[in-house]
Design a protein around this nucleic acid. Structure first.
Lengths: 132, 132
DNA sequence: CAGAATCCCTGTCGATACTG
DNA sequence: CAGTATCGACAGGGATTCTG
């Protein structure tokens, strides 16, 4: 059975379970990880633990608000560990948990697919635009 | 080099390229595929071609509006093929393109990770909630 | 330094009604 | 059947300001 058939089979199974978010991992997890910043932060932290301001410098176009919020969500989901040193000024270091690191494999697969096929997608988009 | 280090290395590379969406596949593609419906539709179509109303029945809580819109985006990106039969009443069949099918592999990896680790995530979420 | 709090705008999305 | 059109609600997210 190829990946395509396997995916279809899984979908059929979820469907019989009403596709509710609690029971469907795709909806429960990918909804969260699918936002603009989560995956990017995981990629950044995959290179090693980083402090809040270091993360902010690496991804300049995220606001402090969204950086905080996204990190907290990832922490609540158990993918990221937040280490607070009670010094003055405070120093907070973020790192991937074992669970977060275990996510690197599947994510890398996705990223490699994206790198490989992104040119083709851009080409298709351009054609669609010309046709319109 | 494990997946985690590989991911970190890729991030470092993108960062030197300004992380702009045009040059960064993660931002250019996962932003689109990361919404609530795209991956679900790809899963459904992975089982085989389906007509518009069949897709709608399989995913009851998507509106016709979003179903149309999401399918059109996937078509514009070259992942989905739209086949219109000019009959009365019209019959439109959607299917995965070869590019779309090639996406099934990485997506399956993600789905399997989600299935495996979703219980742990739910547990962590529950703990966080209790602590709050 | 690492946020918390507030304001406000924008796009996203659902509901509904209509059409070829 | 397979959409399109329009409206309105709501939340995502940016900018700014304040704090321990």
């Amino acid at each position: 059975m190829d990946a395509c058939a396997a995916l279809g089979a899984k979908f059929e199974l979820w469907r019989t379970l009403q596709l509710d978010p609690e029971g469907c991992p795709v909806r429960g997890l990918l909804d969260k990880l699918g936002d603009r910043w989560s995956t990017l932060l995981i990629c950044s932290l995959a290179a090693g633990p980083k402090r809040f301001s270091a993360l902010h410098r690496q991804i300049p176009d995220i606001s402090k608000r969204m950086l905080t919020q996204t990190l907290r969500t990832l922490e609540a989901d158990g993918l990221v560990h937040r280490d607070v040193q009670p010094t003055v000024p405070p120093s907070v270091t973020y790192s991937l948990t074992p669970l977060g690191r275990s996510f690197a494999g599947p994510l890398l697969g996705l990223v490699e697919w994206a790198e490989t096929h992104y040119p083709a997608v851009l080409e298709t988009r351009a054609e669609t635009k010309r046709a319109a």
